[in-house]
Design a protein around this nucleic acid. Structure first.
Length: 276
DNA sequence: AGTAGGACCTGGTGGC
DNA sequence: TGCCACCAGGTCCTAC
């Protein structure tokens, strides 16, 4: 579910509350798929217990929880994941896979569909982590430029949207909603071969990606179904969506009808008149 | 190598 | 009310 703006919202919401907290105890759901890529539950518990949280960073859609040992817990929320601070006396919600106990609160990771995953990077290995280091530039980093964007797409024949969804190629952090919104604002059709963008179009797309994501972060993300950024509060970008989920409705720019198609088995929304 | 499509899961919704 | 098919914001693997 969460794309970059939702993950960034969660990060900002949690950072101040967990930074400096010591992990007093760890609970991991038995046999949870989310930990399939870690060292094993027992070893992970040992690595986390007693450690102090020093920072909460974001790389693309990943959250990186830095510890005073120099290691880091790396979390991806998949389609349905969430991180919540709960009162110590409250029992954990359904589908909780991880609980970190602090002195006054507990942090839980909830994920009904179990598409999320948790990784662990040992001290000094965070920057060389195979998953994180393979990510394309973060849209808010200086390495994400219009030139780099166009180069990463050049020669590729797959649909532009498919290229934008690939976290390791052009840009990291875009998902199904924001990829559609960015294509719309840039005036480019999502089915265009990725390599067919002109320099001007690549600049517009680069600009749109930064603006759409920044605006969505300001709105604390989008709420389509069950996404909540913290204990029951919801994002407000939904009312600003220009194409996503608006099949048959009026385009706010040209008055035409929004179309829906499928790209790589993902629902795709666009305005056939505004997007060439 | 690059690309397409299904697989992996649970829960909510809308149609009958 | 109940049942069922379909849909969902993300990767990941396999096959062409």
């Amino acid at each position: 579910m969460p794309e970059l703006p939702e993950v960034e919202t969660i990060r900002r919401c949690l950072e101040d509350d967990i930074k400096g907290e010591t992990i007093e105890d760890v609970w991991i759901k038995r046999g949870s798929r989310l930990f399939r890529d870690t060292v094993g539950d027992a070893a992970l518990k040992r690595a986390l217990s007693g450690r102090k949280i020093t920072r909460l960073d974001r790389r693309g859609k990943y959250l990186v929880m830095g510890l005073d040992s120099g290691s880091a817990l790396v979390v991806h929320l998949g389609m349905s994941g969430g991180l919540y601070l709960i009162e110590k006396e409250n029992s954990v919600p359904d589908h909780t896979h991880l609980k970190l106990e602090f002195s006054k609160k507990n942090l839980v990771m909830v994920d009904p569909r179990t598409f999320g995953r948790v990784l662990f990077s040992k001290a000094g290995e965070v920057d060389s982590n195979v998953v994180l280091s393979a990510l394309a530039p973060d849209p808010f980093k200086g390495s994400f430029t219009a030139v780099r964007l166009r180069e990463s797409l050049s020669g590729r024949k797959l649909p532009l949207k498919a290229a934008l969804l690939d976290q390791r190629t052009a840009v990291s952090g875009l998902g199904n909603i924001y990829a559609d919104e960015c294509c719309f604002r840039a005036g480019v059709h999502p089915e265009r071969p990725a390599g067919s963008l002109s320099a001007t179009e690549a600049e517009k797309l680069h600009d749109s990606i930064k603006k759409v994501l920044a605006e969505a972060i300001e709105c604390k993300g989008t709420t389509i179904r069950d996404y909540q950024w913290s204990e029951g509060r919801s994002g407000e970008f939904e009312s600003r969506l220009r194409v996503y989920g608006r099949e048959g409705e009026e385009c706010r720019t040209c008055g035409g009808r929004i179309s829906k198609s499928r790209i790589r088995e993902r629902s795709t929304y666009y305005c056939p008149r505004c997007q060439k």
